[in-house]
Design a protein around this nucleic acid. Sequence first.
DNA 1: TTTATTTTTGAATGCTGTTCACTTTCCTGG
DNA 2: CCAGGAAAGTGAACAGCATTCAAAAATAAA
Lengths: 239, 239
Amino acid sequence: MGIKERKEREKKQRANDILEAARQLFERKGFLNTPLQDVAKEAEISVGLIYRYFQSKEDIFASLALKGAEQYDKQLEALLKKAKGAKSRAQVAELLGDIAESFFAFYGPYGEYFDMLLYSYKGMKEVQIQATTLTRLMSVTLSSLDKLKTFVHRSPYFKARNEDEALRTVFLLWGLLLGCHKLFDSSGRGHLFAFQKDTFIKEMIEQVLVGIGGSTSEGKEPVRKPSLSSRELQFQDSL
Amino acid sequence: MGIKERKEREKKQRANDILEAARQLFERKGFLNTPLQDVAKEAEISVGLIYRYFQSKEDIFASLALKGAEQYDKQLEALLKKAKGAKSRAQVAELLGDIAESFFAFYGPYGEYFDMLLYSYKGMKEVQIQATTLTRLMSVTLSSLDKLKTFVHRSPYFKARNEDEALRTVFLLWGLLLGCHKLFDSSGRGHLFAFQKDTFIKEMIEQVLVGIGGSTSEGKEPVRKPSLSSRELQFQDSL
DNA sequence: TTTATTTTTGAATGCTGTTCACTTTCCTGG
DNA sequence: CCAGGAAAGTGAACAGCATTCAAAAATAAA
């Protein structure tokens, strides 16, 4: 029964062609500025055929987001394995920096709709998206969070004493990543701030590791040399 | 010259009517699911007239976002004034909780497009938005950040020694707020997590105040009783 | 009252996501 | 090799909606 398998393969291939065409165009011109006609042309098929492979334009994006999330999950796993047993602040900081980089690589292109799909998006158009895609998207997200939790729990660096405390730490880090990304997504109309992304992330990580409060423990922290200057708080825009 | 003034007033009033109609509908059905026809009907005018007051549908949303941001900025100012001199961790935690609440009130409805406008949004439709609206939106954002920075710098609680260190702290907090919001925006398709918003925010604040790292300083922190349980890490969905 | 200006209308326009009747291609059983 | 039926593929037609515009209505000025 090789025919059925070949057909299966071809179908997968075709779906992949569509996704790849869409990915390129979405990245170049933006999701809302890319008509499906263009996607069809790029994939060298007719418009109608797209709907034999995806339920809607949003469904295509959801599939792309899923691929991105799965890739991130794999990278995260590798990074955590590599850093297992990290003990010094420098080691942990490096790990977090790597995670941030990997996270941004996925979240940059797909984050917008990833949010829409997962957390629901008030402004989102009500359209059909394949249930399995959504389910897998959630599943892989939870998987990533769980990996992080386990790492934090077992790590000799973090002081979380049980899984629940570790989970809080994970949410803090996760939230910080999301927030940093927002503060920093910097391709397009104009930038609010004038600092470098890499430096910014590094300093945020350092800051969260050090903590922000506790005037009681004054003096025990190593001296930091911030590159973030108050002078950065100004327009660098192009209106 | 009362006529000109009256006309001015009426014009402002009309613009406000449109905004209010749009606000209601956007909130109820979502931005993308609300045709301008409906906005016009709600405001009891014709579709065409909307375009004498706003440059595009997105322009309406930008105006709404601006109003929200301005309101938040005012509330922030009041909260900071009230909490001036806060010294204990409990006081600071309460302040941050209040700020978070105020932030979410604004960011919930308008955040999506606020992001689009400020940080630029790859998926955004390329449309005309009044330049002054964008400028003011950025301006008020920077103003809020600056207020926070000044507070942190002068506060006896935070250990920031200069404005630059204070700014880092502010970005950390700001990023955390954005991140928490994302993790928690929970109206619609389904929720990833199963915990309560208020509790969650409180615990995140506590966590960031305590810090997450530093196994060296073990034991000096007060015992925490987390309500976030690992069991929460599962679907609570409605697919 | 007449004329000029501004406001307001809603039908027309154009773009685009989605559907559908139809054609082509491909597989299978005789 | 040949039907004939299923699956893949097509692109014109449809529908929804942001946006425009020519014309009408209302208002101000003369």
